[in-house]
Simulated scan of single mutants.
Amino acid sequence: MKVWLFLMGAILSEVVATSALKASDGFSRLWPSLLTAGGYMVAFYLLSQTLRHIPVGIAYALWSGIGIVLISLIAWLLYGQKLDLPAIVGMGLIIAGVAVINLFSNSAAH
């Protein structure tokens, strides 16, 4: 169970870091820049701990899939990014893929 908390922590840290990266305005603003650097450091540390127990392909599929959906939602809420129907359908397919991996794959650590 702890490994899944590490993975979720890694994903959330990466999402915070990426959101702060947008706010850093090309690293020209101090606090968002520091949050970006710190968030990525935490994310990669937690991901490295995750990879001790979950295969890299599975961990990365979950990391990137969940991260894409969360970043897109944050960009929509905070930055006014438009999400058209193909984008929403694509994210739905990503969510379905993550569910299939977690529910049916023997490759994922359960």
Rank of each mutant, 00 (worst) to 15 (best):
G67M: 07
A61P: 06
L77G: 12
S19G: 13
T50W: 07
S48Y: 01
A75Y: 02
Y60N: 11
Y40Q: 11
G26D: 06
A23K: 06
A37F: 14
L73P: 00
A43E: 01
G65E: 09
Y79Q: 00
M41G: 09
S64I: 00
I58V: 13
S48E: 02
S19F: 07
L51W: 03
Y40M: 00
S28P: 00
P32Q: 03
T18A: 05
A20K: 04
Y60I: 13
A23S: 06
P32L: 05
G57D: 04
Y40S: 06
L78M: 08
A17L: 08
W76Q: 12
L12M: 11
S24M: 07
Y40G: 10
A20V: 02
W76L: 11
S64L: 02
A23F: 11
P32C: 07
W31A: 11
E14A: 12
I11S: 06
I71D: 04
R29S: 07
I66C: 15
K22F: 06
L47Q: 15
V69H: 14
L21D: 03
F27D: 09
G38L: 12
P32D: 13
L51G: 02
V15G: 03
Y60C: 13
Q49I: 13
T36W: 03
A37P: 00
L46K: 08
L73W: 05
G67Y: 02
R52N: 11
L70K: 08
T50E: 02
A17Y: 01
V15M: 02
V15N: 01
Y79V: 00
A20G: 12
A43H: 06
D25R: 10
I71H: 03
G38I: 08
L21F: 12
I74P: 15
K22E: 09
V42T: 07
Q49C: 10
G80V: 13
A37D: 05
A61L: 09
L12W: 00
L62A: 13
W31F: 11
L7W: 01
A75G: 15
I54E: 05
